[in-house]
Amino acid sequence: MKKPYLTEATIRQAFSFLKKRQEHAKTVKKKDWEAEFENCLKVIEELSARSR
């Protein structure tokens, strides 16, 4: 069996990356980017919560 792509560690890493990108969007004042990153973060949180 191949190594799974989505593990708890990789999901945490992706979440952390998106949080940093959202902070960057705030500093460069890109509200549309900030909203998109917020949406991605909410999706990850919802999917993670449903899987438990």
Rank of each mutant, 00 (worst) to 15 (best):
M1Q: 06
K3N: 09
K3I: 15
P4N: 09
P4A: 06
Y5K: 15
Y5A: 13
Y5R: 15
L6V: 05
T7Q: 06
E8Q: 10
A9Q: 15
A9S: 12
T10I: 02
T10G: 03
T10M: 12
I11Y: 02
R12V: 00
R12L: 12
Q13E: 12
Q13P: 06
Q13R: 15
A14R: 09
A14I: 08
F17V: 06
F17Y: 13
L18V: 15
L18S: 07
L18I: 15
K19A: 11
K20C: 15
R21A: 05
Q22D: 00
H24L: 09
K26T: 07
K26E: 11
K26Y: 06
T27L: 04
V28A: 02
K29S: 09
K29P: 15
K29M: 12
K30D: 10
K30H: 08
K30N: 12
K30Q: 01
K31Y: 10
K31I: 01
D32Q: 09
E34I: 01
E34A: 12
E34Y: 07
E34S: 01
E34D: 03
E34Q: 14
A35T: 06
A35W: 00
F37D: 11
F37H: 10
N39M: 13
C40G: 03
C40R: 12
C40S: 12
L41R: 03
K42T: 09
I44K: 07
E45S: 14
E46V: 11
E46P: 04
E46Y: 04
L47A: 08
A49K: 15
R50D: 10
S51E: 05
S51T: 00
R52L: 12
R52A: 13
